[in-house]
């Protein structure tokens, strides 16, 4: 088991508790902003892009700092990012394909 520890000590320089707390503060603030945006009617025309940006920011913070991708080898980033890109493209294309389809739906009933 000792070699695990060795390998481990050798590879990561994780940030300390202070960084984690700052990130947590950011996460909370971003979440609060999301909920606020949701309740402010004036912002509704730009609700979608705003929410997407805020969620992406939260996502990136957790992945980079809590999951240590910023500190770990790029290999792990690659293993994660590539499927993530595919997943995003899949999401976008499915939504667009079905948006087209919905113009050709038969009336239900």
């Amino acid at each position: 088991m000792s070699d695990i520890a060795d390998a481990h000590d050798g590879q990561t320089h994780h940030p300390g508790a202070a960084t984690y707390l700052i990130i947590a503060a950011f996460l909370v603030i971003l979440t609060a902003m999301e909920v606020t945006v949701f309740y402010v009617h004036a912002l509704h025309p730009v609700l979608v892009p705003l929410l997407i940006v805020l969620a992406a920011a939260k996502f990136a913070l957790v992945v980079m700092f809590y999951m240590h991708l910023k500190y770990d080898q790029w290999l792990l980033t690659g293993v994660f990012i590539f499927p993530l890109i595919i997943a995003t493209l899949l999401l976008v294309s499915l939504i667009l394909l079905f948006a087209y389809l919905s113009n050709h739906m038969a009336p239900i009933g």
Binding site: I4, H8, L76, V79, F80, P83
Partner: peptide, 18 residues
């Protein structure tokens, strides 16, 4: 020096994304 289990878990996470 990345542990294989870490690579394995990250690949699994990648799969979970889809």
């Amino acid at each position: 020096g990345v542990d294989v289990r870490k690579i394995g878990l990250w690949s699994f996470i990648g799969s979970e994304c889809v």
